[in-house]
Design a protein around this nucleic acid. Structure first.
Lengths: 214, 214
DNA sequence: AATGTGTTGTTGCTTTTGCAACAAATATAA
DNA sequence: TTATATTTGTTGCAAAAGCAACAACACATT
């Protein structure tokens, strides 16, 4: 594992990274698929760096519906306080999408400079800016998907964004069908029904997770 | 108008602000209620600082439905490139909520340091970080609202967030009824019907824009 | 006060979506 | 491999939400 492949330590020498991780009192943990990594109702303010695998930030409601708020791939980062307002957190969890490794760092280590004032800390702060900007873009894309009024429009909007990302009319879904329904916040069976109609109307083709917009 | 009341120039001396605005080739424009300020499908990369009034970032779909993506109050900031991914923009507009004044600055002036290398530019960059963080929090709150499956849950979720913000069970809606429906992305008449039921079930009381959670 | 413009409230009807339940297919673990 | 769990596809039925149309109301302008 190369820590400088992660978004937070990008552009920093591997040895400097190791030194900083020690200084930041970073802790590494391993999880298996389906494990709950943390609960955003906890008050502790830390960030999690996903060094292998991928995780989802989910919200569960009182009726048992699950919604995926964020999907975080390898080398991505999650954390309550730098993205959600203090008042939310109830019902929000980070769960493993597959077996994964996460490095935890308490947030104040990132934001407040330590006495050693190492130069590479500036790079971390600058990377943090890029991460927050990137997160905004992902949140806004997701918001645009959810602002669509019908299941079909949500699906098409989501597919168009993925298509633009891959610069092709064909692309691989980063989700299972169940997870896709949770991401667009609709009932799974209703989504399947709509996808079937869309295939029949020749708007899309689907093969496992590979989607093509026609 | 005090430019250092805005989020971007916070903490900077008024004279320095004026000097920077000149250096940034800032342009001020006035609008009246309902005016379209800009269209995010345009390629120009600028930010807009709302120095008076308030604006909404909206998205219109092919059926004529309007969704409010962001609501920006006085001293807030809008801009396509620091928040939306390059592929979106089609159908997204910034419109005036009421008469307002906006200062436009091309983004590269903010991100790229000019040769004069003034100290206060660092404060602007640091403020920009805070603004993006703040935006993330607003986007994530909105996302949580839209992740709710029913109109009632969307309303309650939205009301609970506003209640937490005002630290009271009573609060003033920042929206008209029509705009609230556009913010939670549901049909206005269906929303009114649901609000009526909620009043009858003694879950809320409403008086004009003042809402109380019971 | 009269007029026009826009917002809010209301309702019947239609369509979409959610829910529940189960079968089929696939993946995972023993 | 076999057993077990999970995911996917399907459907009928009920509930929720959207649509359209209009009346009531509020507000600003003349």
């Amino acid at each position: 594992m190369h820590i400088n492949k992660t978004m937070l330590f990008k552009g920093i020498d591997e040895n400097d990274c190791k030194r900083m991780l020690k200084c930041f009192k970073a802790e590494e943990k391993n999880y298996k698929s389906g494990d709950t990594i943390c609960n955003y109702s906890e008050k502790t303010d830390f960030i999690g760096i996903v060094t292998s695998g991928s995780v989802n930030v989910i919200r569960g409601d009182e009726n048992g519906n699950i919604s995926i708020l964020e999907h975080i791939e390898e080398n991505g980062l999650f954390g309550k306080y730098f993205i959600y307002p203090a008042s939310v957190g109830e019902g929000i969890y980070v769960v493993c999408d597959c077996a994964c490794t996460v490095i935890f760092i308490e947030s104040f280590h990132i934001t407040k400079r330590c006495s050693k004032a190492c130069v590479c800390h500036s790079t971390v702060v600058s990377n943090m800016f890029d991460i927050v900007t990137e997160k905004s873009k992902e949140l806004s894309s997701h918001l645009i998907v959810l602002s669509c009024r019908s299941t079909r429009e949500k699906l098409l909007c989501c597919f168009r964004l993925l298509s633009a990302q891959s610069q092709s009319t064909s692309f691989e879904l980063p989700f299972s069908a169940t997870a896709l329904a949770e991401y667009i916040c609709v009932d799974r069976s209703a989504m399947t029904r709509e996808l079937k109609k869309m295939k029949e109307e020749c708007i899309i083709t689907m093969n496992k997770r590979k989607v093509t917009l026609l």
